[in-house]
Design a protein around this nucleic acid. Sequence first.
DNA 1: CCTGGCACTCGGGGGGCCCGAGTGCCAATT
DNA 2: AATTGGCACTCGGGCCCCCCGAGTGCCAGG
Lengths: 338, 338
Amino acid sequence: MLSERRLQVLRAIVQDYVGTEEPVGSKALTERHSLNVSPATVRNDMAALEDEGYIAQPHTSAGRIPTDKGYRLFVDRLAGVKPMSVPERRAVQHFLDGAVDLDDVVGRTVRLLAQLTRQVAVVQYPSLTRSTVRHVELLALAPARVMLVLITDTGRVEQRMVDCPDPVGEASVADLRARLNSRVAGQRFTEVPRLVQDLAESFDAEDRGAVSAVVATLLETLVEETEERLLIGGTANLTRFGHDFPLTIRPVLEALEEQVVLLKLLGEATDPGVTVRIGHENEHEGLNSTSVVSVGYGSGDQTVAKLGVVGPTRMDYPGTMGAVRAVARYVGQFLAES
Amino acid sequence: MLSERRLQVLRAIVQDYVGTEEPVGSKALTERHSLNVSPATVRNDMAALEDEGYIAQPHTSAGRIPTDKGYRLFVDRLAGVKPMSVPERRAVQHFLDGAVDLDDVVGRTVRLLAQLTRQVAVVQYPSLTRSTVRHVELLALAPARVMLVLITDTGRVEQRMVDCPDPVGEASVADLRARLNSRVAGQRFTEVPRLVQDLAESFDAEDRGAVSAVVATLLETLVEETEERLLIGGTANLTRFGHDFPLTIRPVLEALEEQVVLLKLLGEATDPGVTVRIGHENEHEGLNSTSVVSVGYGSGDQTVAKLGVVGPTRMDYPGTMGAVRAVARYVGQFLAES
DNA sequence: CCTGGCACTCGGGGGGCCCGAGTGCCAATT
DNA sequence: AATTGGCACTCGGGCCCCCCGAGTGCCAGG
């Protein structure tokens, strides 16, 4: 087990390294932190920390830098979440207040996060899985063509064209619209398949084909839209990564473009609080030198989606976690109001 | 006026430089291109080209590289558009064919363009300005709350919440829906304000407030959504820029995140064919070392939006122009069919 | 107008050198 | 047993210098 002072030394190393981006030596540590011991003592501690795998030396005669394991310990036991300052909070709230629709909320959120953390921000659109249907609208555009519009309680709207096997009259469409809504309005997505299962049977034979087509499309839409979308911003912040970075930045950009990767990444973060994945804890290779800080957000107490940031493992964890948490809270609040 | 051979020399310089990324000298030129003159002659030509500002030397004793002006001449007079190969065309068509909705089309297009050109792709969502209204839907969600859904002929759907000053009944909503649609359905966006101007007056006094609110929101939506949205992809290709590139890449990434800049950029390209803006021809400073190749696309013969790529000024112009043009054509075709 | 010859330029790569931050270890001290 | 000062050692990075060779401009002759 590591002594209290050794933990302090590790904390100091992380803090200094995050600040200066340079390996930190024993002398500098004693000068910048009041550890009340001599450099030699710190050296012994550092040797011990290195044995345990918390820190490493880039070259033989250089200072130490934290390893992924070191950051992990730092995040878990040595650092809290640094709350955002009051002016910052006010700015966040103010910035979100101008949003007019869901796209706008997400767009503002991503810019906000990127700016606050000076890192790459990722915001997932509210999930439809937990959502309920607010309304289903049908529009007869042509004899055998119907447009299906699905409106969710999170304010999201999806539309699909439906080509019917036979022409259907306006009246039938209106009828179907009414019956569909009476069954599914207010219901959870997951319930919908069960609720509309036998709907076609209650229609005249001549309309049955069209009804089936509409219902099928509705179900498809639900499934398809459960695959989340997300928005990314602040990629310019990647340039602050390091000096060597053609090699570093490329795989990160590639990973960011693969939405699947990111969705999986966010999906794994099931922690009720802020989740931090450090370096190699991320499965995707391109993200092995980055850390992902994410958290769920939602209106009320349920999580409808996640948001987070991607940055170098050498990041200000307390500050980033604070910003991520605060933004999530305000976005949730904002969604609940609207 | 430049002699024919000097133009050939310029063309050769551009081609070689684009291929090798290194300044090209007189000897290499005579070897790799059958100019049938000696290096000394080429040197004279190069001196002339430099006097005219078409090429420049990075250092005194180095080969030449094209200037923006040189690329301009190359694009305008020395190079055609290189059509895509048949297998490539087939791949494009096949790749687009799977798209299910507008978002999907745009998403696929951007990935396609990025992959084909190995550069950053930008695709603008079909413009609403030229669009017509397909349908306006109103949903009474609460006594004094109405949801407005606008459906365009390009398949785009926009929704807004409307808070009415007074409660309004289902019947009034249905009435308004019918009257609204009879006036604006099938009409161009630009016509709508004129058409709905006096709509409120034809309603009972008690509903007039609500009607005004709905109409106001509709007009707002039209204006707001005329500000286009766009999608970007392939940013990882920026890493192929050059060796010096922390300095180069950063402003580009920043510019790409400012949608306003990009929209303006695409907006300026009014040429009926492929438009190329080279280096400093781009107003935005961050894009001074990039070229933008863009073209309009649309269903039928009218342009509903633009798409293009952003890459280093040192790019394969004929190939890029060919890819951009082909993709635009196929996307337009695809939109027309759906 | 083209060409071969020639002197000149200068960026970049390679080698060698030195400096100093940082280390590990040890003996002395508390 | 923990801490400390002392000390020898390591080695990456910066610096200087030198040289090479691709490339140039110019000129005189074809």
